[in-house]
Computed example of a mutant assay.
Amino acid sequence: MQTFINAARTVDLAAYRRGQTPAELTIGEHGTVSVSYAPFDFINRSAELVLVGLTPGRTQAANAIEALQQAFAADKTQDEALRIAKSTASFSGSMRSSLVAMLDAVGVPAKFGRTSAQEFFASGSDLVHFTSALRYPVYLANGDNYSGAPDPLGHPVLRSMIESHLAEEAAALPKAIWVPLGKGAAASLQHLVGCGVLDGRRVLSGLPHPSGANAERIAYFLGRKSCDQLSVKTNAARIDDARERLRLQVEALAA
């Protein structure tokens, strides 16, 4: 991995942001997808909450590479530079507010003796670890971001990333609460549960994704919108079931 870290220090960021992935960052090309290095190696071993996306997009990867370059320019050690680069994955704005409200609603803060999930994200806090089912950026042949097809668990290379990199993080954070953001992340975590690498009791699958596109589902989950106000696109019964299951799951953990 050292070779890729060295290469990231000199990447032309402007070209990278335009969709040009340099060969020196390419970990491998496999059929319709390619895996590229970006500095997402750091694991925050003191985290109580782990947020898991599918894979870093190009913008997120470029921001991490830029942070790495700036850290090295400021004479930071490599370990510190990797930590700073990983921290650029911060989860902010309305998405964070929605996630905090949903975690509060199912009782997660009480599990750690806290009054609100906002405390996980407090300034100077070291309680959240951001990661992805596929640690390094995955791109399609045309340079676009990968969004879940082909199925990561059905693709041998992508599956191996889950069973190596994500499994490493699961082993490092056995007492944290794991929150998958999206179906791909949830399926990946459940795969590790099936492999015996991750404790399924600590995986909170079923929370609506906290993006703006899920505003109605989030509002109903939080009781801010009634069933009769929902559009036909929102399955109230499914959300009710998920909310109650998650509440009971967290209650059992706290006990």
Rank of each mutant, 00 (worst) to 15 (best):
193 V>K: 00
206 G>R: 02
242 A>K: 08
208 P>Y: 03
235 N>M: 13
223 G>E: 13
244 E>G: 05
207 L>W: 12
237 A>P: 04
217 R>W: 00
197 V>T: 12
236 A>L: 08
205 S>L: 02
218 I>P: 07
242 A>R: 12
229 Q>D: 13
216 E>M: 06
194 G>F: 06
240 D>Y: 10
209 H>R: 12
239 I>Q: 02
231 S>V: 04
206 G>A: 10
201 R>P: 02
213 A>E: 15
197 V>N: 06
243 R>S: 04
228 D>M: 10
201 R>T: 05
238 R>Y: 09
245 R>A: 12
207 L>Y: 03
216 E>K: 07
222 L>Q: 04
231 S>W: 11
206 G>F: 05
208 P>K: 07
224 R>M: 05
214 N>D: 15
192 L>K: 00
229 Q>F: 10
225 K>T: 08
202 R>M: 08
196 G>V: 01
191 H>K: 04
244 E>K: 10
228 D>S: 13
221 F>M: 03
242 A>P: 04
198 L>T: 11
196 G>H: 05
213 A>R: 15
240 D>P: 05
242 A>T: 01
230 L>W: 13
218 I>F: 01
213 A>Q: 15
212 G>K: 15
207 L>S: 11
193 V>C: 06
225 K>A: 10
227 C>A: 11
240 D>F: 04
217 R>N: 13
244 E>A: 07
209 H>Q: 14
244 E>F: 12
231 S>Q: 07
232 V>Q: 10
229 Q>V: 05
210 P>K: 13
219 A>H: 12
196 G>D: 02
204 L>Y: 09
204 L>P: 04
221 F>D: 01
246 L>V: 03
194 G>M: 02
189 L>I: 04
213 A>F: 15
199 D>A: 08
243 R>W: 03
241 D>E: 15
189 L>D: 05
209 H>G: 12
222 L>Y: 04
218 I>K: 02
209 H>T: 13
210 P>H: 15
238 R>F: 03
236 A>C: 09
242 A>C: 09
206 G>S: 09
227 C>L: 09
245 R>E: 14
213 A>L: 14
202 R>T: 06
197 V>K: 08
234 T>M: 06
189 L>G: 01
238 R>M: 09
213 A>G: 14
194 G>W: 01
222 L>K: 02
207 L>Q: 14
223 G>F: 10
235 N>Y: 11
229 Q>M: 10
237 A>I: 10
211 S>E: 14
199 D>K: 00
235 N>F: 11
201 R>M: 03
210 P>Q: 13
246 L>G: 01
234 T>H: 11
200 G>M: 02
191 H>T: 03
195 C>Q: 10
212 G>N: 15
228 D>A: 11
218 I>R: 04
207 L>K: 11
214 N>Y: 14
224 R>C: 01
244 E>T: 11
206 G>W: 01
211 S>D: 15
207 L>I: 12
239 I>W: 03
225 K>D: 02
204 L>D: 02
202 R>Q: 09
200 G>F: 04
235 N>H: 14
204 L>I: 04
189 L>T: 01
234 T>E: 12
218 I>Y: 03
194 G>E: 00
218 I>V: 13
